[in-house]
C-alpha cells in the first residue's frame, strides 16, 4: 500500500495553528504594542510561547521557571516543577509536535522547497545533548547563582538565547512601541542574529532549535519513555520495512525505540507504516488508527 509521506501533517498543522491562536488571542496587543495583563497570566502554556508576545494570554514555562528560581525568595520552583511533571507525564514531547508555536514556525520554514536539505550529519547525535547543557546552565544554574546585590537573578536563557522571545515579543514590540525602538542595542542585534540563524537552519534542517537547543524539549524528553501517551510497535504486524525510521525527521527509529526521547509524536511514522503496526496508547489503553 502506497501512503502519503506527509501523513497527518495537515491535521497537525491545523491543531498547531489553532493552539497558537488560542494562546495568543490578545489581538489588541498587536495593535497597541502592549502585552496582556489579565489574571490568567499566572498560568503557563505547555509550549515555548514568550509572555512578552503582545498576544500571549498566558506564561512561558521556561521564562516562569527562571523568574521563580531567579527571585531572591526561592531557589526551587514547586509550581513550575509540578507543571512540568503533570504535562510531561500526560503527554511527553507530544507538546513539541502539537502545542508549541515555535515548533509550528520551524515546521513551516522547513516546508520551503530547497534541494539542499540535511537529515543527519556527523555531529548530530552529540549535538542533541546540547539542549540538556543549555537547560542546566542557562535556565537553572545561571539564574540561581548570577544575581544582583539583592539576590535577584536574570532569565539568562531568555536574555541571551531564546529566538522565540525575539520573534514573538521583540520584533512586534520594537516595531509598534517607540520607547522600545529607542532602547534597541547590541543585545537586540545579537538576538536577531540568533533568530535569523534559526530561520535559515530551519529551512535546511528539520527543527534545529528543538533538536539541539530547546530546554523545554529537553525537559519533556525526559518524560517521553514514561508518559501516559505512548507509541508501541505491534510486532505481529511489523514487517521491519524501515519506512518509519526513514521518514522520521527527528532521526528516531520507532521499531528500535517507539518512545525515544527525541520523538515529538508528529505521527509521520504511524501514517507511513504500510501494516499499521505503530499504535498509540493513553494510560495503557490501546488505541488503533
Amino acid at each position: 500500500m502506497v501512503k502519503n509521506k506527509n501523513g497527518n501533517d495537515g491535521f497537525r498543522h491545523i491543531i498547531q495553528a489553532v493552539w497558537t491562536l488560542i494562546t495568543n488571542a490578545y489581538i489588541i496587543g498587536f495593535i497597541r504594542g502592549k502585552i496582556y495583563q489579565g489574571k490568567i497570566k499566572n498560568v503557563c502554556v505547555p509550549g515555548l510561547n514568550c509572555y512578552s508576545c503582545p498576544g500571549a494570554v498566558a506564561s512561558c514555562p521556561i521564562g516562569a521557571l527562571q523568574a521563580v528560581i531567579g527571585s531572591y525568595e526561592y531557589k526551587f520552583s514547586f509550581y513550575i516543577a509540578g507543571f512540568f511533571i503533570i504535562i510531561g507525564t500526560l503527554m511527553g514531547r507530544f507538546v513539541c509536535g502539537y502545542l508549541c508555536p515555535f515548533g509550528l514556525f520551524q515546521d513551516l520554514l522547513n516546508k520551503i522547497p530547497l534541494k539542499f536539505k540535511i537529515n543527519s550529519f556527523k555531529y548530530d547525535k552529540i549535538l542533541r545533548y546540547l539542549k540538556y547543557c543549555i537547560l542546566i546552565i542557562f535556565v537553572i544554574l545561571m539564574p540561581i547563582f548570577i544575581t544582583d546585590i539583592i539576590g535577584q537573578g536574570f532569565p539568562w536563557f531568555c536574555k541571551l538565547i531564546c529566538p522565540a522571545g525575539t520573534l514573538e515579543g521583540g520584533l512586534p514590540l520594537v516595531a509598534l512601541n517607540d520607547a522600545m525602538k529607542s532602547a534597541v542595542g547590541f543585545l537586540y542585534g545579537w538576538k536577531c542574529f540568533i533568530l535569523i540563524a534559526v530561520v535559515i537552519l530551519s529551512v535546511i534542517i528539520y527543527r534545529p532549535f528543538c533538536k539541539y537547543v530547546c530546554p523545554l524539549g529537553a525537559i519533556y524528553s525526559l518524560f517521553n519513555p514514561i508518559s501516559a501517551f505512548k507509541y508501541r510497535i505491534n510486532t505481529d504486524k511489523c514487517i521491519n520495512c524501515n519506512m518509519c525510521a526513514n521518514i522520521c525527521k527527528m532521526g528516531c527509529n520507532p521499531v528500535e525505540n517507539p518512545n525515544s526521547m527525541e520523538c515529538i509524536r508528529c505521527g509521520k511514522c504511524r501514517s507511513i507504516c504500510p501494516e499499521e503496526a505503530i499504535e498509540y496508547t493513553f494510560f495503557n489503553s490501546h488505541k488503533n488508527r
Binding site: 514568550c50 512578552s52 531568555c158 536574555k159 514590540l173 522600545m180 542595542g185
Partner: peptide, 9 residues
C-alpha cells in the same frame, strides 16, 4: 514586558 526576553534589558 520582559526586557531580557525581547532583547533590550
Amino acid at each position: 514586558i520582559c526586557l531580557e526576553c525581547i532583547g533590550i534589558g
